[in-house]
Computed example of a mutant assay.
Amino acid sequence: MGFQDKGQRHGSTLYSEVTDQIIAQLEEGILPWVKPWDDGRVPLGLPRNGQTGRCYSGINVLILWHMVFDRRFHWQRWVTYRQALAMGGHVRKGEQGTTVCYADKFIPKRNDAEQASGGEEPRQIAFLKRFTVFNLDQCEGLDDDSANGPVTRNEAVLIPRADALIEASGADIRIGGDEAYYAPAFDHIVVPPPHIYYEPINWYRTALHELGHWSGHPSRLDRLPKTSFGSPEYAREELVAEMASAFLCAELGIVPTVRHADYIGSWLSVLREDSKAIFRAASQASKAADYLMNFLPPTEAGEDRVSEGRLAA
């Protein structure tokens, strides 16, 4: 079932635009979901709506992160033109906005009536809708309360939040050896001990990556592929776990120094064949990150996310 944007051309264009941009970055060896958070300019974390404070999710995270670093913005907060006015400020004249989107479904009235009369479930049609948002750097009269927060939060005092999440998940994590992997058949994770990492902070990035896979078990989000290493489905799952780890690291204040790019070739193959693949993977990565963050107490889990299907903009 394809997506439509009140006449599919707009949705298809957006899929192609975003996918082509990510392909270009991967071809240069750049992972779009991993950014130099410790460059001293922008607070660590996921992009948030400046009025509601809720996180964007899915493909919108990649779109907004790219713009933050491409245009050297200082904030992770974004608002629509109307929201800026409602908050007592305004978007500066001449500023160019950034397109974000949400995916949702609707039931055509004719289709609804026809199938209802035949006793069938109405057929839903998915669509993709665009919104334009502006970074707080592009606005006047607005303040970002997060500006006073730490830009980099690698301090050991904050890493226990990741420890708390890992423990609260209840995942069977076995420390040892020199390989990291998730074994679906036995539902356990194997991660090398932190001391063998050149910089122990990277242990968290690895553990969260494997927890991303763990979240896809049939008893949880039921997402894992039935195929083996090397298949397109396997590459898609690695892409989901990679982005889920990046989203979790951003939320937990972890800035890993290692950049795992082992699957770039297979990711490129998947994205070149399907312009919607990165949208699906990013959406699943956000669902995995949400699932894992929810193991933390409400006061620790942070603010609500805004998914593509619930974009409060």
Rank of each mutant, 00 (worst) to 15 (best):
Pro150Glu: 15
Ile59Phe: 03
Ser146Gln: 11
Val18Glu: 03
His10Thr: 13
Gln138Leu: 00
Ala116Cys: 08
Ala312Asn: 11
Trp78Thr: 00
Glu242Val: 00
Leu239Gln: 05
Asp187Ala: 06
Glu237Arg: 06
Ile107Thr: 14
Ala185Arg: 15
Asp274Cys: 06
Ala312Val: 04
Ile63Gly: 03
Asp137Asn: 15
Ala116Phe: 03
Arg236His: 11
Pro200Asp: 05
Leu64Thr: 07
Val258Asn: 09
Ser283Arg: 02
Lys276Leu: 02
Gln4Lys: 13
Leu224Gly: 12
Gly176Arg: 10
Asp104Gly: 12
Trp75Met: 08
Glu238Thr: 00
Ser219Phe: 07
Asp137Met: 01
Lys276Val: 00
Gln124Asp: 05
His188Arg: 12
Tyr204Gln: 05
Arg48Ala: 01
Gly170Arg: 07
Trp267Gly: 09
Tyr15Asn: 08
Pro150Asn: 14
Trp37Arg: 14
Gly230Ile: 06
Glu167Phe: 05
Ala281Pro: 05
Tyr102Arg: 01
Thr99Tyr: 13
Arg41Tyr: 11
Ser286Gly: 14
Gln8Tyr: 09
Asp70Ile: 04
Gly216Ser: 05
Gly118Trp: 03
Ile196Ala: 03
Phe3Gly: 06
Ile189Lys: 08
Gly141Arg: 07
Arg305Met: 09
Tyr102His: 10
Asp222Ile: 07
Val306Asp: 09
Gly45Ile: 04
Ala246Pro: 01
Leu292Thr: 10
Ala183Lys: 10
Phe134Ile: 07
Ile201Thr: 14
Trp65Val: 01
Val91Leu: 10
Arg41His: 12
Ala313Trp: 12
Leu14Met: 08
Gly53Phe: 01
Asn294Thr: 11
Ser286Ile: 09
Ala168Asp: 03
Leu165Asp: 12
Ser12Cys: 01
Arg272Met: 00
Leu136Asn: 10
Leu136Arg: 08
Val190Met: 10
Val79Pro: 06
Pro256Val: 00
Tyr181Glu: 04
Gly149Lys: 14
Asp70Tyr: 13
Tyr181Lys: 09
Ala116Val: 05
Asn154Lys: 03
Lys276Ala: 08
Asn49Cys: 06
Thr206Asn: 07
Tyr204Pro: 03
Asp187Ile: 06
Cys55Ser: 12
Leu14Asp: 05
Gln284Met: 14
Arg280His: 07
Glu179Met: 07
Pro194Phe: 00
Gln83Phe: 04
Ile166Lys: 08
Trp203Phe: 15
Ala156Cys: 01
Gly7Cys: 04
Ala183Val: 13
Ser231Met: 05
Gln83Ile: 02
His217Phe: 02
Ala301Met: 14
Ser219Pro: 05
Gly29Asn: 10
Leu208Ala: 04
Ser219Thr: 13
Asp262Gln: 09
Ser117Tyr: 11
Met293Arg: 15
Leu221Pro: 08
His90Asn: 10
His188Trp: 13
Met243Val: 10
Ile254Met: 08
Ser215Gln: 04
Ser245His: 07
Gly40Met: 10
Arg82Trp: 05
Pro184Gly: 01
Ile107Glu: 12
Trp214Thr: 06
Pro36Cys: 00
Phe229Gln: 08
Leu292His: 12
Gly88Ser: 04
Gly7Ser: 14
Thr99Val: 12
Gly58Leu: 02
Arg71Lys: 15
Asp112Gln: 15
Pro192Phe: 00
His213Thr: 12
Ile278Cys: 05
Leu248Asp: 12
Gln76Pro: 00
Arg272Pro: 00
Met1His: 14
Asp222His: 15
Val100Met: 04
Leu26Glu: 11
